[in-house]
Every structure is written in C-alpha cells, then in structure tokens.
Design a protein around this nucleic acid. Structure first.
Length: 425
RNA sequence: GGAAGGGUGGCCGAGUGGUUGAAGGCGCCAGACUCGAAAUCUGGUAUAGUCGAAAGGCUAUCGUGGGUUCAAAUCCCACCCCUUCCGCCA
C-alpha cells in the first residue's frame, strides 16, 4: 500500500508508474475521498473538543451544586452529531483504504520499462548447458519411467495438478529441502523458522495477496487460507511490531508447502511438476533498513543462486520489466534454470524488494536511533528455491542415455550416498 | 465442544463514570555528582490524524467492534485472543 500523503505530493510519479505497469487506476476519486475524510475528521475533532471541555464544566457545576441542565441539553445535541460523524469517518476511511489497497507498488528507477515478459532483461548467465548425445527427455517422462513420480495415482487421490512422489523421488525432495535449509542457515546466516501453513485474512492483506487476489487462494471452512508461499506467514511474524534498528537486517528462511488454486491457468503447464496446486518451497525473507534494502536484494538473490551453483544447474538471472512485475514488488529478479527437456529457461526463484509497500500494510516498523522516529522497514523475499522445480531441473540436466539420472555430489550425503537413480528392474 | 479466569504504555502493575494519555515501579535516554564506573539525584521517555513556518495546540487510541451517557479504561452487548480445568484427539 502506498502512502496517501506521498500520493498527493507525487501525482506525476504515480501516474507514470501505473502507466509503466500497464495498470489503469483513476486517481480522481482517491483525492476526493481523502478530502472528504479530512473534512469529516476536522469537524469531528472540533466537536469532540467542545464535548471534552463542556463535560468538565458540567462536572464542576454539579460539584458546586449548581444547575447544569441547560448545558447538558445543549450538549445532547452535540452528542447526536458526534454519533453520526463516527460511522461517516469510518466509512470514508474504509473507502479510501479500499481504493489504496488495489494500487500496485511503484517500480524502482532501475527497473526496465516494458510490457510483458518479452521485455525482461537478462542480467547474467551461470554455468554451461549440458550437451547430450541423445534427445533429452522431459522430467515427467523420466520420473514416471524411474518410478519416482506418479501423476496418475495423484490424480486419483486428489485430482489434476497434484503429484505423488515415491521412493527415491520422495527422498530427493526431502534431501533438497534439508540441503537448502542447511546452506541458508549455516552459510548464509538465516534463522530457520517453521511457520503455520494456514493464515488469517489480515496476514494475506499484509503481504498484498488480499484483497485483490483472493481467487488464487484456497480458503477453508474456518475462514483460514492455505498459504500460497511462506512469504505470507514469515513476513507477518513482525506485523504490528516495532523492531530495534540494530537488529536489521533480520533474515529468515522457512520450508513450507505452498497452495495455489491456479485459477485462470487452464491449459498451461498441464504436464508434470511445473505448475501444481501444492508444491514445496524453501523461502528467504528479509526485513531490511530502507537505506540498504537494494544491497540486501542483491545478496538475497546471490543466496538463492548459490543453491543452483552447488547443484551444478545452469541458470540465468533476469530483471523483470515494469509490466511483468508482481503487484507488491518494487523490483524483482527472476532466476531461471535451464531445462534441457523443455529446451527452455524456467523460473525457479523470484527475488523481490517490496520496499515499504508490505510494511505499511502490515505495520512493520523500526525505531531509528538517530531521528528517534519510527520508520517502515523494507521487506524482501525470494525462493531459495522452489523444490519441485529443482527436482525437474536435476532430472532433466543430469539424465543419461539409459534413462537413469545422476545425483549432484552435494546431495549424495542427504540420500545415503546414492549417486544415481536407475530404472527399477 | 463445556466450565472458570484474564487481556491497561517497551515490561510489571494501579485505576470509586467527571482535568486519566492514564498513579507507582522497572527499563531506556539526557544531565548533575565522580578521575571513571556503580549507587544516588533531576529531567525526559507511545502511536496516528489534524492545524501551525516553528514552538506548540487539538483529536483519537487502555484486546476488537457496537451500545448507554452531557461525559466511558471504568457500565451493558457481541466477537477475538490468552491461561487453567473437563471432554475429544495426532
């Protein structure tokens, strides 16, 4: 959420940002709502002031056993108006916030202006694409043949977009989770957390999924929502809190399953592990000092890249253009891993700086020592990494002519030393 | 699910419907004392909105939302959360 004060003072910047994003928002009602809100608030304040003063005088008169009837009668009228104004102000505030809540974040100045993913800019490429003496297969075929991925039975159990992992497949997924958490906690300095997988609406509002993107979420009969990413529960750890400046940046990593309804993605990535209703992810979250958050974005992206490097998976980093960025983000790097079976780069991590957009919604602040003021922190997060898609990348990059798949060396200790997954006899 | 108790400032904790944004204490910050520190003393220590060039003023906030009243932390209702006990349960 943007600051209404900032908006009134920076109308041009906002209009440009919205245009760059390809979003259309009529700003006029916003200013009208704000003026209305202010007008009502001023009225309310002055009437309350009168009430406060007069009620003291009434108390004094009554103490002195003097007649206060006339004054009470007068104040009864004021009270009526005050009672009306209360709901009017609440309504004005709610309407203003409703309008504010659906305005996307302002892109950072370093973000390229563009329409869609075709305008994203490649920043760097790491690793060498593997060369095969045969036509590389796609992961779902490999996984089914190896008996480690069972899509048919998952469909029987749950429906489309679910996967049953078996044997070394299940173990590989678990190994990756442990490996990623170990790297982030032992080498990159993140605190491991294990948050709830169901959250309330307030948390989803804090990170920006609500109110605009409710259709993407699974909701329970108890009005909880299944988390679409660990970003939601982890970022909300400090909702409504004021952190100490010297604690920043706070760095946390969490493994969670993620649940997405994938409404509107019919026909997209229908095969395999790429797009699921439920998938595993290790997430990185940072609460940073606003003056240093862009350094933190770089290092967070590097932390995620490190996993791919250790696994020996080729990837590239792209910066998303204004038109392709998420609603809450000010700048996003996508890390795309190379998938030889698909002959394509596919997103395996998305690292964003939200600046104070989420922090304002969730009221996450810190006490700045120098100014003695409370300021909003900057929140950042990124996948470190999407686990299912990492399995995809390993299967496709490490496949061999006979259909077996080698295991990257760093993972072998997590798999009881297994070096290759082979077809069952 | 049933029963009981409880939610007040960074923390602890008082609070008979009427100068209570809220006693007292702890903590924190600044100053005095000291060669320095501790102890002691003095002062300051919330957030947001609004008016103002500023100093500062005004308003709101005692779990949340409503109600009663000229006036609510204080009375009434609903909800949320926490604790304990019972039931159920991994």
């Amino acid at each position: 959420m943007l600051d209404i004060k900032w908006i009134t003072e920076n109308q041009k910047a906002l209009s440009k940002a919205l245009k760059d994003r390809g979003a259309t928002v009529d700003l006029k009602p916003l200013f009208a709502l704000n003026d209305e809100r202010k007008k009502l608030q001023i009225q309310f304040d002055s009437l309350r002031n009168e009430q406060n003063q007069k009620s003291q005088e009434i108390a004094k008169l009554q103490k002195e056993k003097k007649d206060a009837k006339e004054m009470i009668a007068a104040m009864q009228k004021v009270a009526v108006r005050v009672r009306q104004l209360g709901p009017e102000i609440t309504q004005a505030e709610e309407e203003l916030n409703k309008t504010l809540a659906v305005i996307p974040n302002i892109p950072h100045e370093s973000v390229p202006v563009g329409k869609d993913s075709a305008d994203n800019k490649e920043i760097r490429v790491w690793g060498k694409k593997p060369v095969f003496s045969f036509k590389p297969k796609e992961h779902d075929a490999l996984g089914e043949t190896l008996g480690i991925l069972d899509f048919e039975r998952a469909a029987k159990i749950s429906g489309a977009r679910f996967t049953l992992y078996r044997g070394l497949g299940a173990k590989l997924e678990r190994a990756l989770i442990n490996f990623m958490l170990d790297v982030h906690t032992k080498e990159n300095g993140y605190e491991e957390v294990l948050p709830p997988f169901m959250v309330n609406a307030e948390s989803l509002f804090g990170t920006g999924q609500l109110p605009k993107f409710e259709a993407d979420l699974f909701k329970t009969t108890t009005n909880h929502y299944l988390i679409p990413t660990a970003e939601v529960p982890v970022t909300n750890i400090f909702r409504d809190e004021i952190l100490a400046e010297e604690k920043l940046p706070v760095k946390m990593t969490a493994y969670t399953p993620c649940f997405r309804s994938e409404a509107g993605s019919y026909g997209k990535d229908v095969k395999g592990l790429i797009r699921q209703h439920q998938f595993n992810k290790v997430e990185l979250v940072k609460f940073a000092h606003p003056d240093f958050s862009y350094n933190e974005l770089e290092s967070l992206t590097n932390d995620a890249e490190k996993i791919l490097q250790k696994l020996g998976l080729p990837y590239r980093v792209v910066v998303l253009c204004t038109g392709d960025m998420g609603f809450s983000s000010a700048k996003t790097y996508d890390i795309e891993v190379w998938l030889p079976g698909q002959n394509a780069w596919r997103e395996i991590s998305s690292c964003s700086n939200f600046e104070d957009f989420q922090a304002r919604r969730a009221k996450i602040r810190f006490k700045e020592t120098a100014s003695r003021k409370n300021r909003y922190v900057h929140t950042l997060n990124g996948s470190g990494l999407a686990v299912g898609r990492t399995v995809v990348a390993i299967l496709e990059n490490y496949q061999q002519a006979d259909g077996s798949v080698k295991i990257p060396e760093v993972l072998q200790p997590y798999l009881d030393g297994v070096g290759v997954i082979t077809k069952p006899v």
